[in-house]
Write a protein that binds this DNA or RNA. Sequence first.
DNA 1: CGCCTAGTTGAGGTAAGTCAATTCACGTGG
DNA 2: CCACGTGAATTGACTTACCTCAACTAGGCG
Lengths: 238, 238
Amino acid sequence: MPLVRKLGAFVALSGAELAVLEGLRKRRRTFVAGRDLVQQGQSDQAAYILMSGWACSYKDLANGQRQIVDFQVPGDFLGLRSVLLHISDHTIEPVTQIEVTEILKSDLLEAFANTPRLALAIFWAVSRDEAMVVEHLVGIGRRNAAERLAHFLLELGARLTLIGQGSKEGFDCPLTQYLMADALGLSAVHVNRVLRHLREADLLTFHDGRVKFIDYDGLTDFADFDPSYLDQGGPLLV
Amino acid sequence: MPLVRKLGAFVALSGAELAVLEGLRKRRRTFVAGRDLVQQGQSDQAAYILMSGWACSYKDLANGQRQIVDFQVPGDFLGLRSVLLHISDHTIEPVTQIEVTEILKSDLLEAFANTPRLALAIFWAVSRDEAMVVEHLVGIGRRNAAERLAHFLLELGARLTLIGQGSKEGFDCPLTQYLMADALGLSAVHVNRVLRHLREADLLTFHDGRVKFIDYDGLTDFADFDPSYLDQGGPLLV
DNA sequence: CGCCTAGTTGAGGTAAGTCAATTCACGTGG
DNA sequence: CCACGTGAATTGACTTACCTCAACTAGGCG
């Protein structure tokens, strides 16, 4: 299970802790693309673990625009931040059809009380999520459109590689240019132009739902991509 | 103590938990402006609680630019995210002279194991920090320079009001236009021009280290500022 | 007194946005 | 089977928000 593998990268979970993690998985649910799981402004939200498919979290602005904060791939938490805040500050929407397992707030609080090492592992996962948001912020603030898009696709590739759905060759990517534009703070037209530019520079291609890295090292260099913030080292706690 | 007040807004801490929080405060240290507390790429970092003064966390880029991720004011944690990640993904630098109390990693892990409600309160604080980073991301991605700057100053005002160092009239602000530029993804020259624009629109002034809100409601409206992400409601857990 | 940092303003350049038209793949109903 | 509509990608022409370079002012301090 992708989540176990992910948390296991941080703490070596004991049998008892794994049992609690299993126990968390209560209701398994399916959502079709476009139907929100969590909505901005709602309170008392459950959290979810994404089992298959892609989702995104975003915020709407008064002027009708939106900013996508992050995409989630299998193994990621959805809405974990909303559990402890009084009201959710963002909306979560499936990009494809997705399968999730719901985690009840009460179960999560109980797990915190009874299995502190599991609590630490979840705390680590949240810290890693925040590190990704921070890197995203840096990209939007200080990288130009081409570097930003290249960095974004490299990060997605690295994350998918961790769960066996990507490699240095590339990965299957269900995102439209509109979704990427909303994530990168660009217009869809410009995303298209930048993709052409990256293709003509023989760095990568993106056709028919597939990202192909033509020159992975060149791309890494071009985008100044340093994956250390993804924190893929071995377990920190034994 | 500002931190107690802040965490107390989330859980009603018991005497025993307050004692642990007291016990955490080991070494009290002072840093002068400009001397880094935590550096990008370092491992095994301690965390700190900011007692007085302002700090900022930022990331350096290969091209020599930098992006400030957030400013910290008294009561905020410094470097909490770095504790659980293998290596720190950012640098923390004092903006003014600051006083901090150091929290040892071992103490923090122990507190997690022994006082789960305190762990939850810290988890809440991290979630709130992440919500602020997310709002910052939205601003850089989708707000123009004037809205972005107005929103930024309103957020700072709201945070400082919580700790008794600000109001709807304004607040003392030690930031230079260069620092704000690095935080907002703008050039210092443009920050200056936008400040003039906001002043000429009778929305706010910023002179001699003091931000004055001339028309607080108009400004809130202009910047589309909704402080709910700062999660200032009462205790969630009793 | 002179240097340094912070702020201010103007002139001109550019990355990215907007508007608009075209193509293509796909599904759906007559 | 074809007409039609819809969403996504593509490209061109034009606009603009913000950047860069540069000059100048004002305060603090050795």
